[in-house]
Design a protein around this nucleic acid. Structure first.
Length: 574
RNA sequence: CGGGGUGUAGCGCAGCCCGGUAGCGCGCUUGCUUUGGGAGCAAGAUGUCGAGAGUUCGAAUCCCUCCACCCCGACCA
């Protein structure tokens, strides 16, 4: 490729709305252009990167035994109604009508379509298992798109769906995909971790997420440095404290705590540690016209895990109670509420940690007052339910008992699910088993955020000059930068020849024949992040040498002209 | 949806408080010089000042409405 025939659109300054480094660099390097919130054009340079990622994903999926197809982006509503997701999915699902006023959706995911294909095409156990995948543009009308392609509304996704005659076979494929994903992210040169995850609205049982580790990640991950345990904080279990509840030694006392509504402030005001305080969160569960009010208790320094709480019996789903509802049930404004003396219509649900606390501090259900020295059993009855409802914090014991947890942040780039029969049952996706009996297929579902990977990779690979692509996803593997391409016949001849030879050898090479000033060319290619650079100049040619510099190298090295081809090939393949 | 903020040239910004018909840097065009790290000099082009309505002799500036975008929150594969 010659730069003059390509399209290079670099920017010295990043547009001001780009918040994180990958977004800024993608805009500055001219990889993407924003068209609307969360909607981007992939410019030629960016598209090359995207295609590289796609190629790796496709190769590994194919060799893992999956088979590619391409499903429509526009899907008739009837399919979504069959699984009730038409009602359940919410405003994230982009709906539209055609000229006949028929309802359609722009697919955010394709369980319905692929299940429809499977139920029409697959009749016998002899045709199973089967794994279909596609690499396709998806649309999700995110509440808040941000970070460029990391959380776009339109994005490129690899989504695969497997169909099985038995759960055991689904488990086998799930492991196969776990391995395949690990290979894909390794080949792409990413630092990643597979973590146990919540299944979210897709539903199903087992699930793992693959996270690229980066401080800018939107997800928190709990992991154990001494074992393989890793889980999304949404799911990570806060194990029950090993210790017994302390003895009640203090008398319950009402104390004035004017204008102290946060545990932190109350603790400082009363001169106790925040670990002695209990935070009460008022929630409401509505079903069949009834309203059930509940108080969720976590220790003052802990935070509520809404996903865990939403799984508790009688709370699925819940919402936070309004200030008016808090007054209605407790006779007190938020900020001073607590479990002591509440009516029988208030359910008290305590986190495991809270359940073993003694002599603690909590709201008095009277504005401006808290209670100290509160004890279970003596001052209030035992909680109606003790459960794990908090987020783990660094230093908590690992659920596998092999050390303590640490926290880090990650960008979710892959997610694998065991869907089981959630969709196949709703859509009557059956086959005849070896007994000749109809049976519902077991399903798995496996996603990779292809466009998100591009952003995630940059978050892990950049310096003050720009992007430092892993070779596998670089737009070009090698750039040839000639010094005085228009002026010097010797330089032009040598650069052209090297370019031709590299291209012939199958190396993804670009020759910068724009005849820009050296500084401009250097800066552009460092910003774009091409991993290998060869400078062709009269200075070197006189000695019969080229100058090589890796994107992350601090110094350039001189390479004899006769060896340059092999030298580069070695590095590109490494 | 709630809170905050921003919309002025391709990009980054000033001007707005205190109304008088728009400017800076980068980029772009042309010429000359320069040519191993984002060149120098000279000449130039580029704006419905986000949109609409209003106040005023006069609006980028003041008032109102709307739109878009960004941040925080809620929400979310």
């Amino acid at each position: 490729m010659r730069a003059s025939q390509f399209f290079i659109a670099t920017l010295k300054e990043a547009p001001s709305d780009a918040e994180i480094v990958s977004h800024q660099l993608m805009l500055r390097a001219g990889l993407i252009k924003r068209l609307a919130g969360g909607i981007y054009s992939w410019m030629p340079m960016g598209l090359r990167v995207l295609r590289k990622v796609e190629a790796v994903v496709r190769e590994e999926m194919d060799s893992a035994g999956a088979v590619e197809l391409l499903m429509p982006a526009v899907i008739p509503a009837e399919l979504w109604q069959e699984t009730s997701r038409w009602e359940k999915y919410g405003p994230e699902l982009l709906r539209l009508k055609d000229r006949h006023q028929r309802d359609f959706v722009i697919g955010p995911t394709h369980e319905e379509v692929v299940t429809d294909i499977a139920r029409r095409e697959i009749r016998s156990y002899r045709q199973l298992p089967r794994h279909f995948y596609q690499i396709q543009t998806k649309f999700r009308d995110e509440i808040r798109p941000r970070f460029g392609v990391m959380r776009g509304r339109e994005f490129l996704m690899k989504d695969g769906y497997s169909f099985h005659a038995s759960y055991a076979d689904l488990e086998r494929e799930y492991c196969n995909m776990h391995d395949t994903y690990s290979r894909i992210f390794s080949r792409l040169g990413l630092g990643f971790r597979a973590v146990a995850a919540d299944t979210g609205s897709i539903g199903g049982t087992g699930s793992h997420e693959f996270h690229v580790l980066a401080d800018s990640g939107e997800d928190a991950i709990a992991f154990c440095p001494d074992s393989d345990y890793a889980a999304n904080i949404e799911l990570a279990e806060a194990v029950a404290p090993a210790s017994e509840r302390d003895l009640s030694t203090l008398a319950m006392t009402k104390v004035a705590t004017p204008n102290r509504t946060r545990c932190e402030d109350v603790a400082i005001f009363l001169g106790v540690s925040i670990q002695q305080t209990v935070k009460a969160i008022a929630v409401m569960h509505e079903a069949d016209g009834r309203r059930d009010f509940a108080l969720l208790l976590v220790r003052g320094d802990h935070t509520l895990n809404e996903i865990k709480a939403a799984k508790l019996p009688g709370l699925d789903p819940f919402r936070f109670a309004s200030d008016a509802e808090v007054e209605e049930f407790l006779g007190c404004k938020p900020g001073y509420i607590g479990p002591v003396g509440v009516g029988a219509n208030v359910r008290v649900i305590a986190d495991r940690t809270v359940a073993v606390m003694a002599n603690f501090v909590c709201g008095a259900n009277e504005e401006g007052f808290h209670l100290t020295g509160v004890n279970w059993g003596r001052d209030i009855g035992e909680p109606s339910l003790v459960a794990d409802i908090r987020n783990v914090v660094a230093g908590d014991p690992s659920p596998d008992g092999k050390g303590t947890l640490q926290l880090c942040r990650g960008i979710e780039v892959g997610h694998i699910f065991q869907l089981r029969t959630k969709y196949s049952e709703a859509m009557k996706c059956t086959f005849l088993n070896d007994q000749g009996q109809p049976q519902v297929m077991e399903m798995g579902c496996y996603g990779i955020g292809v466009s998100r990977i591009v952003g995630a990779a940059i978050e892990q690979n950049f310096d003050d000059r720009g992007i430092c692509w892993p070779v596998a996803m670089a737009p070009f593997a090698v750039v040839i930068v000639p010094m005085g391409y228009a002026k010097s016949d010797a330089v032009r001849t040598a650069a052209d020849e090297l370019h031709a030879n590299l291209a012939k050898a199958g190396v993804d090479v670009v020759l910068d024949n724009r005849d820009e000033r050296p500084g401009v060319m250097f800066a552009d290619w460092e910003l774009v992040g091409v991993p290998h650079r060869v400078v062709v100049g009269e200075r070197g040619l006189k000695e019969g040498k080229f100058e090589y510099k890796g994107r992350r190298d601090s110094e350039a090295t001189m390479v004899p002209a006769a060896e340059i081809l092999e030298f580069l090939q070695q590095r590109v393949c490494a």
